[in-house]
Amino acid sequence: MEVKEEIWELRLYVAGQTTKSVTALQNLKKYCEEHLKDKYKIEVIDLLVHPQLAEGDQILAIPTLVKKVPEPIRKIIGDLSNEEKVLVGLNIRPSTK
């Protein structure tokens, strides 16, 4: 898979600074650093501040991670504690460690 040219655009929807949200962001950052170094953008959207954005990405659960690019769009909900699932969801093969 030609991954080098692609940039992962990730959006993390949270609602305030809840434990789950904080954990999710930490986990996400960790995975991205490990597997997608310099190939990702993380945008954190706090729905408490921008509730109107919830409809656009069909957000139900909090926290939700949305991968817009590369296609296909995937959503990962939860605190992202399961690394394997997150990586599958983001379509990242664990690079050789």
Binding site: Y13, A15, K20, T23, A24, L47, L48, P51, Q52, A54, E55, Q58, I59, L60, A61, I62, P63, T64, P72, I73, R74, K75, I76, I77, G78, D79, L80, S81, N82, K85, V86, V88, G89
Partner: peptide, 28 residues
Amino acid sequence: LDHVHIERSEIEETGEYDLDGLFIRLGY
């Protein structure tokens, strides 16, 4: 009108979550 679209194939669940997103949408 607010259409809530849930597509199982697009969603991966990992760990704890809640439905605050829905609440916020509805509340909004």
